[in-house]
Design a binder for these strands. Structure first.
Lengths: 210, 210
DNA sequence: ATAGAGTTTTATCAAACAGTCAATTTCCGT
DNA sequence: ACGGAAATTGACTGTTTGATAAAACTCTAT
């Protein structure tokens, strides 16, 4: 019995949905849900507004499709934090991967930032269930490492916040970062400089050993 | 000669402008410039839209007034970083004050975040001049401390980014922070927990001395 | 108390907005 | 090549939005 007659997608449908989501990512990541317009997205996707609305009936449907697609990718680095690995390389890896995501998917990062800034009206439930669940789980792992003396004792949850904020900063506040660094240091090398700094910060801290 | 006949403000004018700016801060900090509406601000300020536009002729004028008022307050903590003080207490103080600003002025922080997220079209020049100038100056101070062996060697500019991002995270991503911490740890104590963690992170790092 | 500046409201506008509809055109398996 | 499904379009609707004009009202200094 075919109880889930998932309508198979045509070539054109697949292509156009991809074009729409890409253009919508441009718009929503900069202006947020309310600030972005359907006309703007349609123009970015190279099609008329009615045609766009043939694929996504409401503006909100586009937005939700984007958020859904984003979540798995976004949480994957934390999910793959391995309890049985060495704490230091595990942490180093996590920071590096989060920073790479800021470099490679800045629009996705900004979309997420915009949603949270606006009070996360559309993903609040997900924050309280899936995200909280994941952080709770990984906090236990980190707390275990700390108890075993393999990491300095500190609040694991705030540690995760610190990794999120420092790495996502290079996507969300990119304009500011580049303005402050100037043309010389603000080029492509800024992510390597950031990686070096964050490794020092998170592992060694700033106070000399004395 | 009175070449700048600054029109002195009446009582009503002073009161109403304050009410408008307060309501506008609510709206712009959540929805950004495009997403916030004049009607919404007028309602928040408890007056009709034409009345509001009697005080600020264009929506953009309200926004710019807010940004102007914000900037001095926002940069003050970094400005007061004292070259002649001890590096460790100076850093500790700077982090603490930035965190207090996130706690006491979350709307202002979100307004700023929204502006940067949107590519900072209205303050780009200021970022490249005033902000860059200040960061350049204070980076020299920090670099001096590092050269003297009073701080671990690291990129001062990225160090400032790290302090900005970690502290502002508690204002800009407040919804997420509270969702992840849950009702028990997400209460008013979260800023003290954050302060403790950030002090450990920035001074000691996470790798045990061993 | 009153004149004039300062304030508020009613009515209104054109543009931008999300979304609909019927008619047309394109695509694609047979 | 053809028929039906899929895709596209232009014309349109009702609403929201930023902004204006003019008339009516209120405050305050004299």
């Amino acid at each position: 019995m075919d109880h889930n007659p998932e309508p198979r997608k045509t070539r054109i449908q697949t292509e156009n949905e991809a074009r729409i989501l890409d253009a919508a990512l441009d718009a929503f990541s900069i202006h947020g849900f309310r600030g972005a317009t359907v006309d703007q997205i349609a123009e970015g996707a190279g099609m008329s507004k009615p045609n766009l609305l043939y694929y996504f009936r409401r503006k909100q449907d586009i937005y939700e499709a984007l958020i859904d697609r984003l979540l798995d990718t976004w949480l994957e680095p934390l999910e793959s934090l391995n309890e049985n690995g060495d704490p230091i390389p595990e942490l180093r890896m996590y920071i590096r991967r989060k920073l790479e995501m800021s470099r490679d998917f800045p629009r996705e990062s900004r979309l997420f930032a915009n949603e949270i800034l606006q009070g996360a009206p559309r993903i609040e439930t997900m924050l309280e269930t899936r995200l909280k669940g994941l952080v709770d789980e990984k906090s236990q792992v980190i707390a275990g490492w700390m108890k075993a003396g393999r990491l300095n004792k500190a609040d694991p949850r705030h540690m995760i916040f610190a990794i999120w904020s420092t790495t996502q900063h290079y996507a969300d506040f990119d304009v500011q970062v580049r303005a402050v660094l100037g043309p010389d240091r603000g080029g492509d090398g800024r992510f390597e400089d950031a990686a070096r700094f964050l490794e020092t910060l998170f592992l060694e801290g700033l106070k000399p050993r004395a």
